[in-house]
């Protein structure tokens, strides 16, 4: 599903070069739950941003269903972000001026859904994450766990086959983290969504994922498949 070959991401400023990612090679099977671990600054977010089409690199290739994301035009990248992948972040990244439902509706609108469909599907998505009663609340009125659920619902709005989660529990207490992880697991198991999750918690990574990537200084330190 995802094939990464010789992928590097090098930040250049004048003569100064920072290699956030260096010569990565790995594959992700469809339907797997991948955990990406590593120290701070090891390049985890950079990797997810490349897969998610938010960032680009001119070194190496990143095939998503046989299409090289690194060769896509800006327009194609937008479509990739819109339909192929969903992303969630440590800081939830909900739009504050919009209610939970409106945040989801916005994603559906970019997906080309009609006004009526948007409303209906947004409610269904909220139901799926157990927040139908919070539909008309502003993000500031939601707890961290609830915010992350809304973000997950929004990321899944246009039915992507891959969900990229960059430290989704980084801002949550352990109980709430557990609920979010469970939600991701359900998506993975029941809907067959491929998940790549960055996490700092080795235990969680071992417990939930079937594929583990350990990065260090932008390089692959360890790649392991875990049979659950």
């Amino acid at each position: 599903m995802i094939v990464i070959e010789n992928l590097s991401r090098i930040y250049r400023k004048g003569s100064n070069e920072v290699a956030a990612l260096q010569d990565l090679n790995f594959r992700v099977q469809q339907g797997s739950f991948v955990s990406v671990i590593g120290r701070s600054g090891s390049g985890k977010s950079t990797l997810l941003n490349l897969i998610g089409g938010l960032d680009r690199s001119d070194e190496g290739s990143l095939f998503f269903k046989e299409k090289d994301v690194m060769q896509m035009s800006r327009r194609e990248l937008a479509l990739h972000r819109r339909f192929s992948v969903g992303m969630i972040f440590q800081s939830f990244n909900l739009i504050h001026s919009r209610t939970a439902r409106e945040n989801i509706e916005l994603a559906l609108a970019f997906g080309g859904k009609s006004r009526r469909e948007r409303k209906k599907q947004a409610m269904q998505l909220l139901e799926a994450v157990g927040l139908e009663d919070r539909a008309d609340h502003q993000p500031t009125e939601l707890s961290g766990g609830e915010s992350q659920r809304v973000a997950i619902a929004r990321a899944m709005a246009n039915k992507p086959s891959v969900l990229l989660a960059d430290e989704p529990t980084g801002n949550l207490d352990s109980a709430t983290s557990g609920e979010i992880i469970e939600l991701l697991q359900n998506l993975n198991k029941q809907e067959g969504v491929t998940i790549l999750m960055v996490t700092h918690e080795e235990d969680t990574a071992h417990a939930v994922s079937d594929h583990l990537l350990r990065l260090s200084d932008g390089k692959m330190l360890e790649e392991r498949r875990i049979s659950q």
């Binding site: 998610g52 938010l54 800006r74 937008a78 992303m87 970019f110 709005a157």
Partner: peptide, 16 residues
């Protein structure tokens, strides 16, 4: 700026 980033992350194109 952040809101624009969010919109892009959920699929907004430059044109949008």
């Amino acid at each position: 700026t952040r809101e624009i980033g969010i919109m892009k992350s959920i699929g907004a194109s430059d044109h949008d």
